[in-house]
């Protein structure tokens, strides 16, 4: 999976079960996004690039900023489960060994403190 062009769009469609071409670019997903101040590319833009068939999407950081809070999913007037689209982008990266969180990244202090659920959820979503 080289992640070029329309291949990424088709793979995302297959893995997420969502049709990116339903998106009408209203931006409700971006407006309510938990990570909107941190993402390089907002969910609406991610959807647009999927429609264009842009393989460089896999190198953007947005999918790793997503907190899967499902606000976008709840609000999309076209019924797209945008969180599933983000998950599909993560999955494509994870399958080629790309991820953003490694156990070695975590300091002893936070490990002593943080609830177990944060570790399990973060590694499931953010590591390969």
């Amino acid at each position: 999976m080289t992640g070029t062009g329309i291949e990424v769009t088709l793979k995302v469609r297959e893995i997420s079960g969502q049709n990116p071409f339903l998106c009408m670019q209203c931006g409700l997903c971006s407006a309510g996004c938990t990570g909107k101040g941190t993402m390089d590319m907002l969910p609406r833009q991610v959807m647009r690039l999927l429609q264009f068939g842009s393989g460089k999407l896999l190198d953007e950081r947005s999918m790793w900023i997503c907190t899967t809070c499902l606000t976008c999913t709840a609000r999309c007037p076209r019924g797209i489960d945008v969180a599933r689209v983000m998950e599909a982008l993560r999955a494509l990266n994870q399958r080629r060994g790309v991820s953003v969180l490694a156990p070695a990244d975590l300091g002893a202090e936070i490990l002593a403190d943080v609830p177990q659920m944060a570790l399990t959820s973060a590694f499931r979503k953010l590591s390969a």
């Binding site: 790793w64 900023i65 907190t67 953003v100 936070i110 943080v114 973060a122 979503k125």
Partner: peptide, 10 residues
């Protein structure tokens, strides 16, 4: 959420 381990600023 779990971004406390990855994106503390968020």
């Amino acid at each position: 959420s779990y971004q406390v381990l990855n994106e503390q600023g968020l």
